[in-house]
Design a protein around this nucleic acid. Structure first.
Lengths: 130, 130
DNA sequence: CTAGGATAATACGCAACCGAAACGTTTTCG
DNA sequence: CGAAAACGTTTCGGTTGCGTATTATCCTAG
């Protein structure tokens, strides 16, 4: 898939705008990366494993699990074969969340191609003061 | 441009991972949206205009301008014709920041197409405990 | 069965963010 | 003029995030 710089930035902008407006719980960059990793890559996922792979500190992972667990975006489960480990698992709510994200990316990407990158529907809410 | 759900999520994941790892100053979702809007849409940009368009509160815009101004990602300028207004302007540093972001999106998007969505180079840093 | 290593969680101090409300300045309009 | 509106900023109280350092629990060797 080929993109020009302005198209790439517009895509990014449009999707992030969807995220901001739909005011879902606003997750930090780290949290979103963790969530996506858990859902995209094959289990098992542990705190240490995620910390190493994503280059995020372990406490940051733990806190992210606290927050996203509270939001039911994923859940913890002790590893019974080695009780030091915590396995991070997916939830239905998390799947829905990411499905929505994927939809946003797909729809915004679809608009990109045959479009003038400058004037989209944005000019209807003018940025200039009245 | 057409994307499948898994491809969309993988693209999002990969780019966000670039952002986390390159540890640039980590901007919040709102901040990135503000930054992108200022650079993608034609000026002038005001606090009130951005707040309305992005559905973000005015104090949040002000704080974002403080932070990103400190990082030299954009700058303020009083509107001389109406001194109540503050015009938000671009900077070289901000352009570089977004150019890097665009590069990341472009490169990650290029990898998407003819690729197996499951096993990429991620498996070399195994997520499983040793 | 005890010492050492590994894992996740917690404590602490700090910084940043948020929304609502209040404020100071500038412009507009009666 | 003087009052009202518009604009951006600041203040307030509260929440959340981060990293470093420490703790509690569990496994594994010797």
């Amino acid at each position: 898939m080929e993109l020009k710089p302005l198209e790439a930035l517009k895509l990014w902008h449009d999707v992030e705008l969807d995220l901001v407006r739909d005011n879902r719980p606003d997750l930090s960059l780290r949290q979103i990366v963790i969530l996506l990793t858990v859902y995209l890559e094959p289990p098992p996922h542990t705190v240490r494993g995620l910390a190493k792979k994503l280059e995020i500190s372990k406490p940051a992972i733990t806190r992210a699990l606290d927050t996203m667990g509270r939001l039911d975006l994923l859940k913890r489960k002790r590893d019974e074969s080695d009780k030091r480990n915590v396995l991070i698992q997916r939830t239905v709510t998390g799947s829905v969340y990411l499905t929505d994200l994927a939809d946003s990316v797909i729809n915004r990407a679809r608009e990109i191609g045959p479009n003038d990158p400058v004037r989209s529907k944005t000019s209807e809410t003018a940025d200039t003061p009245s």
